[in-house]
């Protein structure tokens, strides 16, 4: 799975070039987990919040996100022997092909959940940024943060499919264009255009709904 998806991720910009395996930042952790599955935990601890956060943005529900997170990591653990570390120089410094592979699993898991259940109809914002945790002295600042977060999330939530995913991966998980291309199975050029159009769409949306 990882091999074909990462090839797609390279896209036309990598076509025809010799493929070279690169050492990515998670290599030692992956090797340890492969040798002994009980050493999978560091990888889990490193990425559990990212996978969960991605699932929350996609599913709009904490319980659904927990379920998708659990399925993702169980699948990753069971299929770790199939993972193949392959990155290209264009993937950028500090790239993790394991993270890309893990997010491919998460994306498939979330898609499966969405196919079997309709997406939560309510905006996820009602149960997300919760002002109950606000320290009394910082109420005003927290209200501003809450409003900003709510506005931004609503705008992103209105984006369609891969535009939304690309924006979340870029701005929330701070993935590179190459990593996003690997997760979404698109070329890097396509990802740039996706994000560009998404930004234009959100800019119009925020302009109309300040």
């Amino acid at each position: 799975m990882a091999r074909s998806a990462l090839r797609k991720g390279g896209g036309p910009e990598g076509a025809g070039r010799p493929r070279i395996a690169h050492l990515d930042r998670d290599r030692s952790l992956v090797d340890a987990a492969r040798a002994d599955p009980s050493r999978f935990e560091p990888l889990y601890r490193k990425y559990v919040a990212q996978v969960y956060s991605y699932a929350v943005y996609e599913l709009g529900d904490h319980h659904e996100a927990e379920d998708a997170t659990e399925r993702t990591f169980l699948a990753a653990l069971a299929n770790l022997h199939r993972f193949e570390e392959r990155a290209r120089p264009a993937d950028g410094e500090g790239a993790s092909t394991f993270r890309v592979w893990l997010f491919q699993i998460a994306r498939n898991t979330v898609a499966e959940r969405r196919r079997t259940r309709r997406r939560h109809p309510e905006t996820p914002l009602d149960d997300l940024p919760d002002a109950d945790a606000v320290a009394p002295g910082d109420l005003a600042a927290e209200v501003v943060i809450r409003d900003e977060a709510a506005t931004a999330m609503r705008a992103v939530d209105r984006l369609a499919g891969d535009r939304r995913r690309a924006v979340v991966l870029r701005f929330v998980h701070e993935m590179t264009t190459a990593e996003i291309a690997g997760v979404l199975g698109r070329s890097e050029g396509a990802v740039r255009v996706l994000i560009h159009r998404a930004l234009r769409s959100v800019a119009r949306d925020l302009g109309e709904r300040p």
Partner: peptide
Amino acid sequence: TAQRLAAGLPRHHP
């Protein structure tokens, strides 16, 4: 817009 998204989109932690 990019600045707003970078600063405003929250990370979720389980």
